[in-house]
Amino acid sequence: MDKQSRMELRRKAGYRDLPKPQVKVQSPVYSMSFACCNCKTSNMRQFNLAPCDYPRTIECPVCKGVAVNLGRHFKPPKNSDTAQWKKVEYLIEHGFVFQKIRTIKNSYDSVPYPETLAQAKEFVIKYQQYAAEPPYIKSLKQDK
């Protein structure tokens, strides 16, 4: 008699308990990047919420200022690169929070974000219809 058969006989006789099913606790689906333009830092945060319910701003853990949710695609510049941080701040002030912009419906092609502040100014004018809704922009200016 093989081991599997012996175990089944013991379970039926009540000598062995059935193994309890393992319950997997799911972690959050996404880590979101929160950036603070005051101290030029970026932090990844996870929440046990649906991605659409993630907070738009949190308190910066470094300077206690406002850290803005820039999504999971944001790649922060180096702390010493002030020109890039000025570009990031300019885009945030105008409602661009580094979400993918797709100009063609049902397409995977997205518009690349600008490299410089001068390009960012043109980008804001060209794609202003894709900026975050006005209450989002107002809340950022009030937090500052």
Rank of each mutant, 00 (worst) to 15 (best):
residue 50 A to K: 11
residue 69 N to T: 06
residue 24 K to T: 12
residue 6 R to S: 08
residue 95 G to D: 04
residue 34 F to I: 09
residue 144 K to S: 12
residue 25 V to C: 07
residue 72 R to L: 14
residue 1 M to D: 09
residue 59 E to S: 07
residue 77 P to M: 03
residue 74 F to T: 00
residue 18 L to Y: 14
residue 2 D to I: 15
residue 33 S to P: 03
residue 16 R to G: 04
residue 127 Y to M: 08
residue 29 V to F: 10
residue 139 S to K: 07
residue 15 Y to S: 11
residue 106 N to L: 10
residue 114 P to A: 05
residue 15 Y to N: 10
residue 21 P to V: 05
residue 112 P to Q: 15
residue 53 D to I: 10
residue 111 V to P: 01
residue 99 Q to T: 13
residue 64 K to F: 01
residue 25 V to F: 08
residue 97 V to C: 12
residue 88 V to P: 05
residue 20 K to V: 14
residue 122 E to F: 09
residue 26 Q to P: 05
residue 50 A to Y: 04
residue 65 G to Y: 03
residue 91 L to W: 09
residue 45 R to N: 12
residue 59 E to C: 06
residue 71 G to H: 02
residue 15 Y to T: 02
residue 112 P to S: 15
residue 80 S to F: 09
residue 96 F to Q: 02
residue 104 I to H: 04
residue 72 R to T: 07
residue 122 E to N: 15
residue 16 R to M: 11
residue 124 V to W: 09
residue 38 N to T: 08
residue 93 E to P: 06
residue 9 L to K: 06
residue 50 A to N: 14
residue 138 K to T: 08
residue 15 Y to M: 11
residue 66 V to P: 05
residue 12 K to E: 10
residue 137 I to M: 01
residue 19 P to F: 08
residue 82 T to I: 10
residue 102 R to H: 15
residue 78 K to E: 13
residue 12 K to N: 10
residue 17 D to Q: 15
residue 90 Y to F: 15
residue 9 L to E: 13
residue 109 D to K: 12
residue 108 Y to C: 06
residue 65 G to Q: 05
residue 130 Y to P: 05
residue 82 T to A: 01
residue 107 S to N: 10
residue 53 D to T: 06
residue 66 V to M: 10
residue 21 P to L: 09
residue 80 S to H: 06
residue 41 T to Q: 07
residue 128 Q to A: 11
residue 75 K to Y: 00
residue 69 N to I: 00
residue 98 F to P: 09
residue 77 P to L: 00
residue 42 S to R: 05
residue 19 P to T: 12
residue 16 R to E: 15
residue 70 L to F: 09
residue 48 N to M: 12
residue 10 R to D: 01
residue 19 P to G: 07
residue 117 L to G: 04
residue 54 Y to P: 02
residue 144 K to W: 02
residue 90 Y to M: 02
residue 127 Y to P: 02
residue 68 V to P: 00
residue 90 Y to E: 04
residue 117 L to A: 05
residue 95 G to K: 00
residue 21 P to T: 03
residue 60 C to E: 01
residue 123 F to T: 03
residue 110 S to V: 06
residue 83 A to L: 08
residue 137 I to Q: 02
residue 11 R to L: 03
residue 140 L to C: 02
residue 23 V to A: 13
residue 45 R to C: 10
residue 76 P to A: 00
residue 44 M to K: 14
